[in-house]
Design a protein around this nucleic acid. Structure first.
Lengths: 237, 237
DNA sequence: CGGGCAGTTGATGAAAGTCAAGATATGTGG
DNA sequence: CCACATATCTTGACTTTCATCAACTGCCCG
């Protein structure tokens, strides 16, 4: 059984999981997870469906197989901060203790694998590979949060948008791509960047005017000038 | 030798180290370190001294024995975001991979224990107790970062200051204390909260005017009205 | 074809930043 | 131990950035 677990640990992840935000493409993940068998069960969620709420008893942890998930914190008066967008291959809720510390919702239709927590926890004790993957996942999330803190605490709206687009590019693969998918709404982007939806729109418009990016459709962007974008993101403007 | 190190961990800290950012009580720290053998060495740093810089080769990880440490990220043009303030009992740099992802500096004079990373890493493989402590430390840091993100992304200056004071109170012990030590400078507070030093001063003045806090001296505050402070922190104002 | 939601753009206001001056600590040499 | 020099902190006047409020567009789906 342990071998089964370990086998679900796709070899490609070794590479995919490497690098601060690198992820494996969905097709690959699907193939790799095909053998997970008894350990995890598949769960499907539709657009904007809640997977769990902050404060709920933490019964499972998850892996994204297909689609995307947002993790967020919400204040009593409804103000929301999105903490992370999760892509195929990403583990989440492994940091939960008794209760979930964040809310998880599907961005679009999403397919997840769900592991019962007590089981998962025992496995992390017994299976060094899984344990290492969990630790790696925690470290990556922590590094991402630290970068995110710098963005929210010290960057202007334009710098935040530039950094955000670069994060999405980077996470597709190691190299630069022209096309960046934006599976989340403008409101989600605003809530990730600590801005309002209006400021997100206006700032994207600015970047278009500067010929740094283009948005032929709402749910993807094209990076016309990666160097300029990097320059803006790092404050050289 | 280890016992000697551990003995320098003042008993008074036992209480100091507990809270939302719950830390192992000193007694426990002592016990856990007892098995680490010749592994840790003591290192002393003076006010504002650099312990390591972001990007340096990660040769050690650390535990604060006495004093306090700040972890930060700095942009090319000097903008700084403080990510965490560390207190006695706290582990840090356990998340580092090849290079440190943050800069660490002593707030005042500080005493640390330093563990060589390869050795520490092997120990985390072999010693379940230490491994669990490391995982717990990562989870705590992640939860703290997520809360911090909400503060920076969605709270006003006044709310951030109130939350900050409450964080410092909470971490001293489970219950509320009147007195809150502020071992860091106003600039450090500003860089933690994503504000300017002037805004920190003015906002503290506001809170004083509201009789929520008092600052008899610059390096500590007295919470006159904890309920009001909590109300402000959670946006009820 | 039309209702509704997501996104965009414009006009205005408020919160926090910047620049500048003054006050209070802090630390050092005489 | 005092006096002066330097740091840090505080407060004030003004500016900038982003939020708010409001109107309008276009796209998606029945």
């Amino acid at each position: 059984m342990l071998d089964a677990v370990v086998a679900t640990q796709p070899r490609a992840y070794a590479a995919a999981v490497y690098g601060s935000l690198a992820r494996a493409p969905a097709a690959e993940v699907r193939r790799q997870c095909a053998g997970s068998g008894a350990l995890g069960t598949v769960a499907r969620f539709s657009r904007n469906e809640t997977i769990f709420n902050e404060g709920d008893e933490a019964r499972y942890c998850y892996r994204v197989i297909d689609g995307a998930v947002r993790l967020s914190k919400v204040m009593l008066d409804g103000r929301r901060q999105i903490v992370e967008f999760l892509m195929p291959g990403d583990l989440f809720a492994v940091d939960a203790d008794d209760r979930y510390s964040l809310t998880a919702e599907a961005l679009g239709n999403a397919v997840l694998t769900r592991y019962s927590r007590p089981y998962f926890q025992r496995l992390t004790e017994d299976v060094p590979e899984l344990r290492r993957e969990m630790t790696a996942s925690l470290k990556r999330d922590l590094a991402a949060a630290h970068h995110h803190l710098l963005m929210l605490g010290r960057q202007s709206a334009k710098e935040r948008l530039a950094s955000f687009l670069l994060l999405l590019v980077t996470r597709r693969s190691g190299e630069q791509h022209e096309r960046v998918d934006l599976p989340m709404s403008r409101q989600d982007i605003a809530d990730y960047l600590g801005l309002t939806i209006e400021t997100v729109c206006r700032t994207l418009a600015d970047l278009k005017r500067l010929n740094v990016i283009a948005t032929p459709e709402r749910h993807y962007a094209v990076i016309r000038n990666p160097n300029a974008l990097r320059a803006i993101a790092s404050g050289m403007n």
